[in-house]
Design a protein around this nucleic acid. Sequence first.
DNA 1: ACTGCGGATGTAAAGGATTACATTTTCCGA
DNA 2: TCGGAAAATGTAATCCTTTACATCCGCAGT
Lengths: 318, 318
Amino acid sequence: MARIAGVSTATVSRSLSAPSVVAQDTRSRVESAIAQTGYIANSAAQMLRRQEARTVLVAVPDLGNTFFSELISGMEAVARQSGVAVLVADVPRDPSAGKRLVEVLNAGRADGALLLHGAMLPGKGGQWTAVTVCEELSRPTPNTTHVGIDNTAAAREATEHLVERGHRRIVHLAGPANTILTRQRKAGYEVAMRQAGLKATYASGDFSTASGFTAAKAMAQGELPDAVFCANDEMALGLLNGFAAHGVRVPDAVSVIGFDDIAAAPWSHPTLSTVHQPRREMGSLAMERLLSELQGDAPAERIVLPHRVVPRQSVANR
Amino acid sequence: MARIAGVSTATVSRSLSAPSVVAQDTRSRVESAIAQTGYIANSAAQMLRRQEARTVLVAVPDLGNTFFSELISGMEAVARQSGVAVLVADVPRDPSAGKRLVEVLNAGRADGALLLHGAMLPGKGGQWTAVTVCEELSRPTPNTTHVGIDNTAAAREATEHLVERGHRRIVHLAGPANTILTRQRKAGYEVAMRQAGLKATYASGDFSTASGFTAAKAMAQGELPDAVFCANDEMALGLLNGFAAHGVRVPDAVSVIGFDDIAAAPWSHPTLSTVHQPRREMGSLAMERLLSELQGDAPAERIVLPHRVVPRQSVANR
DNA sequence: ACTGCGGATGTAAAGGATTACATTTTCCGA
DNA sequence: TCGGAAAATGTAATCCTTTACATCCGCAGT
């Protein structure tokens, strides 16, 4: 390659990474040699020499949850623009998972991580940089940046939305117990209920469509509440279908509001009222922050993005 | 690290990669030094020296489509067991995408690729190994392994399922024009219709829930067919909701059958009849094949896995 | 004409793990 | 006790880029 262009490997390297220091005609000779041979620098050698991978690890608790895809796509867009690669790991919510992530970081395969996951921590040392997205770490860690919305406030507003429309017996279909999202959204719900002088009541799910469907069945067979606030949209859609399957009309008999505003929410029947999170922006912002922290600028920070209650058909006026 | 254990780096390397050639007590000294320091081999150096990345690239056309998540999870499970990392790239169906993949491969960042994508080809040379999954390459390439089901036969059976139950005016809600999946499923539908002496009729979608919803609206406002065969489940679910929104009862007024059997299919209302693909097995098998082809064994092959029509509530007897 | 400087390029030393080959140690049998 | 094979370990080259430093060239200033 260098021989074809008649220059040293150093010059090839320079014409790729700092074209301005190479003389015009030398550079063009190098360029044509590259075009001719299809040369691409070996990334292992680059990583080794530079001591950085120019790669970011994105840890997702569940790739199957459509909420994440747009987040990831926002991340990728930013990364690509900065010439940084993205390593996506589907990391189930189990304890051994954190260890695997740490290994990836310590092996130098990635320079930092984006965690869509409150469960696993940077371990003890935490020498590398991580940014948490949506779901903060369970123990607050002051020197880790977080990007997300105010889940508690959003949950409160969703509940208030129901209260304002005349609903009284409002059930919260909560998420799995081990995540902080569940706690925050539950807390917001409780605040709103207390303020309205209403009694908090719970059903439990695991963020899956199936668990929403099942919850609907239980409610349809017992006493129906006025409304249900679901901790995420997948469950809300399951609930909608479950109610339909048991002849319970939404929103006539019961109102439903979700959380996330996933792509399918406007296309359900009835269309799903929910809380919108700016997914794409969260993704791109989180990546931008991580990249600048890796560069050394930017101190750790807690970034709160705006959310918004989106009224659709699944909530009625009583 | 090597100094703490009092041995050379060569011995450390050997006790990790070939423990049997290292003496018992030396090995245990090395092991305790590793435990003490938390040493993890630098992967860039390993890649460089070994001339392989022990990494596989998985190219997905759309991470948002839940059909892929279980596939990927099957792939990851196999890869992890073999100590191979997985690089997931969300590669939209655009022409420039292929180039980026080739770069990753040529830079030595990955040894081979799993393509869930018929669109982009291994380029001209094709010196590295790729396995296509579900969606075969548009131009048949004899020396590339493919893992998938027989889409044409499956589509034919889905259509026959409708015919057998007395439906006559059966519309096919097709996928986007540029993918081979669309062509194959359309072809299967056509065969079944021709054999039954029925006239093929089409609606067009793009695999998204939204396009299914929209299609339902159009049908509800025109003349309703007896049944609709959707090219995938996301559209079928959108169609179900769209019909519900327009007061069209499924399956009483019109039957619907989908394709893929995604996780949400059993939890819709009515529950969705569809064609099941063994996603997890497809993923793990594809990964196994790719890995053994990378090892040099295993010739290229076309592997067809069994599919199965799953009758649920969305198809009625007429 | 010589010094000095800036611009362009080459030289060679990292970077960390692997592995062929060399060396040392161990152990057995004669 | 010694030779020699086998076992264990060390030495050093290698993988490919990057980059500090050395070199070389031409040109301007004195």
